[in-house]
């Protein structure tokens, strides 16, 4: 009996995309809950010791990394593998730099508002959850550089790159909301 494939390659891409989007939508409710907790417990209070310039600096680093990721993904979709690798490596570097920035923040925050205080509870949890996403994002980006995906790129299949880059952008979007919530509101 002839067994035909129910789903062609194009449909498969649409399926994968929808699945990833649903994952992202689901995950965004986690951040929604975290932001809600901040306002529920602390209102719009903000301790004067918080390092606003550092916050701006790491925000800019993260946005730059998103640009690099975008360039990497676009290059991959157009088959420009060299440019793809360069940009994804750049993304990895900027992501790591972001984590260093968070580390600096944390060491300062430990002195002014440690996690056992009201604001510290919120601050460390929000940045911690976000940093966890950054770390998983970095791991995912690394996977996109491994031989499996490289070989698939040569066959014109860039879904793996698209997926990790989408996740990376999502991590950036989450930060767009977290940054003002923690560093700027009054």
């Amino acid at each position: 009996m002839a067994v035909i494939a129910h789903t062609a390659h194009k449909d498969k891409l649409a399926i994968h995309r929808l699945g990833l989007w649903l994952f992202i939508i689901s995950d965004s409710f986690l951040f929604l809950g975290l932001l809600f907790s901040r306002f529920y417990l602390q209102g719009v209070r903000r301790p004067p010791e918080i390092n606003q310039p550092l916050g701006l600096a790491i925000s800019i680093v993260l946005i730059l990394s998103s640009l690099a990721a975008y360039r990497g993904e676009t290059a991959a979709a157009y088959g420009d593998i060299k440019r793809f690798r360069r940009n994804i490596l750049l993304t990895l570097g900027l992501g790591a730099l972001f984590l260093v920035g968070v580390g600096l923040e944390w060491s300062e925050a430990f002195r002014s508002f440690p996690p056992s205080t009201g604001y510290g509870t919120i601050f460390f949890t929000l940045t911690g959850f976000h940093a966890f996403h950054v770390v998983t994002g970095l791991l995912a980006l690394t996977v996109a550089l491994l031989p499996g995906q490289r070989a698939r790129l040569q066959e014109g299949n860039s879904w793996g790159v698209e997926a990790v880059v989408k996740y990376w952008h999502f991590v950036d979007v989450a930060w767009v909301f977290i940054f003002p919530t923690l560093y700027l509101v009054s």
């Binding site: 529920y40 996690p115 205080t117 009201g118 604001y119």
Partner: peptide, 16 residues
């Protein structure tokens, strides 16, 4: 880790 979400002594709230 001793965070204070639900501890009123540290601005937490069990209603959360």
């Amino acid at each position: 880790l001793g965070l204070g979400f639900f501890d009123p002594a540290r601005e937490g709230n069990v209603l959360l």
